[in-house]
Design a protein around this nucleic acid. Structure first.
Length: 218
DNA sequence: GGCCAGGTCAAAG
DNA sequence: CTTTGACATGGC
């Protein structure tokens, strides 16, 4: 049995299609990804709603807006000393790199786009991959704290290094954008539903796959 | 009141 | 190269 595929199958059976990323446009995915650090989706949603009301949910508008103005709208998402400036700087990057056209921006080899993303302030590997996968439609598996936690608990990871974990999942999951998108979303859904920091696997659909599920060696 | 959230970065060992 | 702390808001 392939543990990774079996995991995907069970999560999908249990939680159903997640339909990530919840956004109305690729640009909105990017804004959300940049704001979605150390906060909750509800706050990101609120911040995006405020930006939209202010007419700032647009690459040129954000690139031109004063950081203080952006800050007043996204404050609810936390880390307001860094996020607003990074958001603005990223929009300027999009204008500079592709005249603000996302189809053009993503129309290069994935590795090349990824390198460009990582060069931006506030864009680490997870944010870069989220943008590649959910905004660009490019196959780059997203690794987050939940991915590492669940993977470790299941004993399929021997490391927690980002690129290593990513490679492990990418070599076990079909290289398909739809599958990558669903898998990541399902891992988040599962973490929130029943895979807490403190191992408590009651009712967990992966229970028998987890080292903590039945004290199978551990 | 303390802990935490779909991270990232700079500083230090 | 690995570890640690700061960052900020708001809900439980």
């Amino acid at each position: 049995m392939d543990r990774t595929r079996e995991t995907y199958r069970r999560l999908h059976d249990r939680y159903g299609p997640q339909g990530w990323w919840p956004a109305e446009s690729p640009f909105e995915v990017i804004v959300g990804a940049l704001l979605m650090q150390q906060t909750t989706w509800a706050r990101v949603e609120e911040a995006i709603r405020r930006l939209r009301e202010a007419g700032l949910l647009d690459v040129r508008a954000l690139a031109a807006a004063p950081v203080g103005t952006i800050r007043s709208h996204v404050r609810v998402a936390g880390l307001h000393r860094t996020k607003p400036a990074r958001l603005k700087a990223f929009c300027r990057h999009l204008l500079e790199a592709a005249d603000g056209d996302l189809a053009t921006y993503f129309d290069r080899p994935t590795a090349e786009v990824r390198a460009g993303l990582l060069a931006q302030d506030g864009v680490g590997p997870e944010t870069a991959d989220s943008i590649l996968l959910y905004a660009g439609g490019l196959p780059s598996f997203v690794v987050d704290a939940y991915t590492v936690r669940i993977g470790s608990r299941m004993g399929i990871l021997s490391t927690d290094a980002y690129e290593d974990v990513q490679r492990i999942f990418e070599t076990r999951v079909p290289r398909d954008v739809g599958t990558y998108r669903e898998f990541h979303a399902l891992l988040v859904a599962h973490a929130k539903a029943s895979c807490r920091p403190r191992p408590r696997c009651d009712g967990c659909v992966l229970r028998d796959l987890c080292d903590t599920g039945r004290g199978r060696k551990g």
